[in-house]
Design a protein around this nucleic acid. Structure first.
Lengths: 232, 232
DNA sequence: GATGATTTGTACGTATGTATA
DNA sequence: ATATACATACGTACAAATCAT
C-alpha cells in the first residue's frame, strides 16, 4: 500500500520516493535516461542506494532497467499502455464492489463526507483541490476493500499510469461530470450494492474495452485508450 | 511476464532467480531469515548483487525487507493470504474471459492440444507431469489475453502464492476433477464465450469469497481460504 | 571495425543502527 | 540502562561492458 507513503528511513527510500515523484508529476518524461552518477550527485548520496532504488522502481514499472545500459523512464508502447488502462478499469471496479460489501461504517461515513466536500469544490471550481481530493477518494475505496493486496496492486497500477494521464480537471464540465459519476459510486457503496458499485465505477473509469480488442491484433486505426477519456 | 524466465545476464538476476526458486519450491520456508553474507557466500558473489536481488524480491512480495534487520521469506498472516487468494481468483477469471475473446487461432489450437495431452497424463496418473503441464496451461491462458500487464500481475500473484499452496495432485481424484474443470474452461474459450470462460475459471480456482468476507472483520472461525481447496 | 572514454556491474571496507546481555 | 555484538546501509575502488569516435 505504501507505494508513495511513510517517511523515508533510509537513503534508498528517499531516492525512490523522489524519483517516483518526479516521474509521476511529469518532471521526468517517459524515455528520459537516468544516470546513476547524476542521480547520486543530485541526492548527495553514492551510487549504491541509487542503484537499489532504481531496481525497486523497475519492479513497480516506472523505469526500465537494461543490463549495462542507462535506466530510462518507462515508455510503454500504445498497445501495452492500452492494456494497463483496461486492467485498471477492472481493478477499480473490483475495488468498488469489494468496498460496497466490506467497508466499515466509519469508512462509509468518511467516504460520504469526502464526497460531500468535493461537491463544494465543484461549485467553487477548485480544480486543484478537487484533483487532490480525487486521489483521496479513490484511495478510500481501495482501503475499503479490506483487501491489502487488491489495494496494493490497484494503487500501483494507478501510479504506473499517472505519467500518461493527460486529462485533468481543467474544464468545469469534466469536474461536474466526474462528481456526478462519483455520486453513483458512493450511493451504490453506501447501500452495499456490489454489482451497482462495480458498474458505476466501471462507467466512471471509462473502460475502453473495444480499443483493447482492436489492439489485440485485428485492426489498426481504432480509437485508442489514449484518446479516450481517461478517468479522472 | 518474465518473472521467472530468461537467462541471467547479471549476478543480480541469477541470485534473484535462484532465491525465488528456493522460496517457491518450498526449499526456503516462509519466515526463514535470509543473511546477505550467507547468500553471497552460497552464490560466490559479493553482498552487493545479493542486496539488489533482495530488493527486487521484496518488491514482488516474496521476501520482507526491514531496514537494518535480516530479510525474511514473506510470511503473510491468514487474512492477507486469504485476500491474495481471492484476488488471484478474480485475476485468473479475468484472464480466461480475455483469452476467450482475444486468443489467436494458433493459441486456441495450442491450448486445446495441451489440454488433450493432459487427459493422457490423468489416465496414466502422472501427477508430476500434470503439475508441470498445469503451469503451462495457466500460462497459456495468461498469454492468450494479449494483455501483457494482466498476464504479468496474474503470474506474479500466482508466484507469490506458490509457497502457500499445499494442495497438490497427489490424489487421482483431484487430478481427474482438475482436468474436468479445465475442460469447461477450454470449451468456453474455444467458442469465444467470455462469460462462460470467466465462470468456469472462477469455479476451477475455487473462489472462497465467503472466507474473505469473514476475515473482513465480522466472524472468527469460518473456513479460511487456507483450508479451502486451493486450485490446482 | 578498432580503440578510447564513459557508464554500469561487482567487490569490499567502514559507519550506523538494532538487538541482546 | 549501558554496553557489546552483529547485520545491514552506504561509500569507494576496480572490473567489465557499452558507446562514440
Amino acid at each position: 500500500m505504501d507505494a508513495l507513503a511513510s517517511p523515508p528511513q533510509t537513503s534508498v527510500e528517499s531516492v525512490r520516493l523522489e524519483v517516483a515523484r518526479r516521474i509521476v508529476s511529469g518532471d521526468l518524461l517517459p524515455g528520459t535516461p537516468l544516470d546513476e552518477r547524476q542521480l547520486a550527485a543530485d541526492f548527495g548520496v553514492s551510487r549504491t542506494p541509487v542503484r537499489e532504488a532504481l531496481r525497486v522502481l523497475a519492479s513497480s514499472g516506472l523505469v526500465e532497467l537494461r543490463a549495462h545500459r542507462k535506466a530510462i523512464v518507462t515508455q510503454p508502447d500504445q498497445s501495452v499502455l492500452s492494456g494497463i488502462f483496461i486492467v485498471m478499469g477492472h481493478l477499480e471496479s473490483l475495488c468498488a464492489g469489494f468496498s460496497a460489501a466490506a467497508m466499515t461504517p466509519v469508512q462509509r461515513r468518511a467516504l460520504e463526507a469526502l464526497h460531500d466536500d468535493m461537491a463544494e469544490m465543484v461549485r467553487e471550481g477548485e480544480t486543484a483541490a478537487y484533483t487532490h481530493a480525487n486521489e483521496a477518494f479513490h484511495n478510500a475505496i481501495y482501503e475499503g476493500t479490506q483487501n491489502a493486496y487488491l489495494a496494493e496492486i490497484t494503487l500501483n497500477t494507478r501510479i504506473r499510469l499517472q505519467p500518461f494521464r493527460r486529462a485533468q480537471f481543467h474544464q468545469l464540465g469534466r469536474l461536474q461530470a466526474s462528481h456526478a459519476e462519483h455520486t453513483l459510486v458512493v450511493e451504490a457503496i453506501l447501500r452495499a450494492d456490489r454489482p451497482a458499485a462495480e458498474a458505476a465505477m466501471r462507467d466512471h473509469i471509462g473502460l475502453v474495452e473495444e480499443a483493447w480488442h482492436v489492439f489485440a491484433g485485428d485492426a489498426q486505426d481504432a480509437p485508442s485508450a489514449m484518446n479516450a477519456r481517461q478517468e479522472p
